[in-house]
Design a protein around this nucleic acid. Structure first.
Lengths: 248, 248
DNA sequence: CGTGCTCTTGAGGAAGATCAAATCCCGTGG
DNA sequence: CCACGGGATTTGATCTTCCTCAAGAGCACG
């Protein structure tokens, strides 16, 4: 037990000693339950930037939690149009849409070199039967995804370009902050086109709007490097658009 | 047991004899499990047109399944803007977004006189532990909602007015057909404004687009009465926009 | 038979898309 | 180390779609 403190073993990350414990599966499990969880989860599959974690249409077996790095999920149409449905950072779960049809409903692609934990779903399901708080947590996670999707619908249905981009930046900022990173100084991992796809805008509009924010002194843009200088102005822009800050 | 065949008892609808069995909770339960389910579900609360089933911000206790009638769910912003997030017909579940925060995240409003079954969530949860197939079914239902939301995101992010409305009509048609109603001749239960809110369009655009479809001979519009004359033309419009037929 | 909705239709305007060109950056290979 | 090529980004000019404003029509209900 104590040998876990040895740096040599630090490669073997388990849920019980994972730094994302509180973000990812914060279920208040006891030591024994945590051990059961560790036994089920296959951790640390690595993906290089651009690699697919799964593809739409593939058989669904597992959920995936981001350990490090960054992913996007997107649905693409026959004629090549693609809609980014979300960006996913550490502690976030992907693949929930696959449960309903036993088939993944979207593509998940690494935006940078990344690492994920694999959660074989049927084993998680039976584990949930033994550990009520785990079962409940899974329901909560799926519900949270539904809430997130609804706020994206609000964004796409009601907001205009500036509001969308402001909401996007603030959401990113907040999620980074909750992971201990700087809230007002960060690197975008995705291209302007991917941001646009997510927000229902063209890449030129994203670029122009970022420039406009910069001209107004609200943000500083240096390619992928973004600084929020006056986040309160961005908030004012989104205010009145309900609680659409949970998008992502 | 046999006295259930008496018409006097037909008021007492249970899951086991509900005509929506296959749509709503088609879990392949045995007789005993079905009885447990019946014991938990409080059925047949009635709502008049315009009444709220629940409101955003209210405490979350239960999910609700539509038995008869029609509901909309919507999130509304401080400044009064409202985004309809879905229309719900018989057999469909509402309230899943409340699980994550123990608080309802949207309003649910009857679009006509309606009847719902109430599913106390915590009791469903523990029942799920005893009946694995029920637990699995709940996961599937939530996942299906996520898939639906994603296809709405695709619609709002990528499609133009005509495509959106065509997708909407086809989706309605398909859901009605799967309930045994005419696929190509139906009554809209919602206003143009509500359709517009759902599709991210203004009511005038909805009206204009319906008129355009009618001029082209693809549909017939008489106020709320819609007939799909050439549904294949509508399908052609949506084709290439991926499988966005699961919107609702 | 008004009154008040919802709906339709038209005209003009604005937001964002499209098309196009210049710039910048990064990784590659010499 | 530096030049090169391809992709990403910025910015400008124009165009399309949809929104906004406005007026009128149709229906529902008292």
């Amino acid at each position: 037990m104590n040998d876990l403190s040895s740096p040599l073993h630090s490669l073997k990350v388990t849920c019980s000693n994972c730094s994302l414990r509180e973000l990812c599966l914060p279920v208040g499990l006891n030591r024994d339950e945590m051990a059961q969880l560790d036994a089920v989860i296959r951790q640390s599959r690595r993906f290089k930037r651009g690699e697919y974690l799964f593809r739409s249409g593939e058989g669904f077996r597992s959920l995936y939690a981001v350990r490090t790095g960054y992913f996007k999920t997107c649905v693409s149409s026959q004629d090549g149009r693609e809609q980014v449905t979300g960006f996913h950072m550490s502690g976030e779960l992907m693949g929930l849409d696959g449960i309903s049809s036993n088939t993944h409903g979207c593509d998940a692609i690494a935006l940078e070199d990344s690492e994920v934990c694999e959660l074989p779903f049927s084993r998680m399901e039976s584990l949930g039967r033994d550990i009520p708080s785990l079962q409940h947590h899974f329901f909560r996670l799926m519900s949270r995804e539904i809430v997130r999707d609804q706020s994206v619908m609000l964004l796409l249905g009601n907001m205009k370009a500036e509001e969308r981009l402001a909401a996007f930046l603030l959401n990113l900022s907040q999620r980074l902050a909750s992971r201990g990173f700087a809230a007002n100084d960060f690197i975008l991992r995705m291209s302007r086109e991917e941001i646009g796809s997510f927000l229902g805008l063209k890449l030129e509009t994203v670029s122009r709007t970022l420039s406009k924010f910069q001209q107004q002194g609200w943000i500083r843009v240096d390619h992928k490097h973004i600084q929020l200088v006056r986040p309160e102005e961005l908030k004012a822009l989104v205010a009145g658009c309900s609680q659409a800050n949970s998008a992502g």
